[in-house]
Design a protein around this nucleic acid. Sequence first.
RNA 1: GGCCCCUUCGUCUAGCGGCCUAGGACACCGCCCUUUCAAGGCGGCGGCGCGGGUUCGAAUCCCGUAGGGGCUACCA
Length: 516
Amino acid sequence: MTIDTAKLDNSVRVRFPPSPTGDPHIGLVRSALFNYAFARHYGGKLVLRIEDTDAARNTEASYRAILDTLRWAGIEWDEGPEVGGEYGPYRQSERGEIYADLAAQLRESGKAYPCYCTAAELDAARERAKAEKRAPGYEGTCRNLTAEQIAAYEAEGRTHVLRFRMPENRTIAWDDVVRGEISFESANVPDYVLVRADGSPLYTLVNPVDDALMGITHVLRGEDLLSSTPRQIPLHETLVELGVSKQVPQFGHLPFVLGEGNKKLSKRDPEASFSYYPRTGYLPEGLINYLALLGWSLGNDEEIFGIDEMVAAFDGTRISANPARFDPKKCEAVNGVHLRKLETEDLAKRILPFLDREGLLLGGAEGHLANDEEWRTLVAAVPLIRERMTVLSEAIGMLGFLYTGDGSDARHAFQLNEDDAAKVLTADAWPVLAAATAALDSLAEDAWTTSAIDEALRTALIEGLGLKPKNAFTPVRVAVTGRRVSPPLFESIELLGRERTLARLRAADAKARAAA
RNA sequence: GGCCCCUUCGUCUAGCGGCCUAGGACACCGCCCUUUCAAGGCGGCGGCGCGGGUUCGAAUCCCGUAGGGGCUACCA
């Protein structure tokens, strides 16, 4: 690849043009990220433009979701909806007059022409071409209609679309930012429709037109649009001739993000939908980092980095051309690394909404999710679980035992995990539980510290009963936390407090005795 | 079918003619640490699609071939 260095300064203008249809896809975020990083790297601008010319498929909900998604990811746009800019409006549905005007200019200049072919005629031609093993594109039937023919069609009541007149006998080539030299023969690129019969403009017109009008210098987009580039370049060239814009942008085609199998990540894959990530408790830092790795790398062996480091290094030269498979495991692992790097209070703040979502918090004054005690507990617990989680939602299972009571207040009542209890709180567990209860009961409230708890339990169970640590502590762990897997036991017991700990131990003891 | 793109461990990648006995990360497997689970440390498994060239020398360049993918709409 080569990048036109003349343009590599603060005049770089890139754009991200989503169509607001359906739930934002994870590929959308990556595409936005690459454009963002490219713009920032060169001190240029990122334009967010909403491509909502397909009225039948666009939804306001999807539009909102796209803005929310970008904001969550920390991808800020310099121009676009809710931000403004001198090239607005930035929703194509509000730019109808501009397109109508350009379409008229294109037609007047002869660069585009009316086509009166009916759908049936085009279908027939396509079938014929297929049968004869020729390329199935539009054959240029209406390319050179005379005024009389047009009048005749009009008299017949036929409607027309507007087609772009592709240049003849030309090699259309460009130096792709990602792939280097790419070329198509114009003979293989049929004249294409710019404006529907009802007068509404198509993507084929509005996308290049807006790129031109908005002064876009670099178009970084998905590989699926590679084959639309040879038809857009001649259009861009005529827009320059028409004085609408100053340059044909440079193009770069990003590799696909693939899902299971070898197909594009589809809506079916749960990890394809962006909303899965915030909901599951991925950090923006983690997702962004992983996404950056899909088709790009720092070039050294560093794989963990923040968006600012990406921006610093993202000059467009290291984008890979081959499709990348989305690996949920690695995404999670990368997220885990970022999670572990967070300051305790920061991580606690991010966990809070997840505990709240499960109804585990009584809540505090003034709309705080947690009351003071709940917050203090969380801040104390975070260091215990930080290294045991990769996504925030895991905190729910690990900390739930701290945020449950005996059923006497608004909190959920503590519950044992049935499986774990059945396996561990068996007949032979009661002596262990009884000994643990006695040992802890002898600890005064003001002696209720991790080290004292540690010592008391070791003395009673390891030395006293001669148990292996695993056999000694597992029943206690299940009794107190409800599960076989928990944060470190002694710290957990300290955080839980004397009263709740002893109550849970006694309840478990009783349960085990009942089994005996 | 036509046009176009892609091809290094299972996955993401480093590699741009000698530094490659192909490096890293995730995953997987062992060991260590250890009150569970993790995290961490150490080690292991595992790859240049194939065939021809070019060259003293090729994962790197060229050609072919195979495989994968995209486009082929009055969707974007």
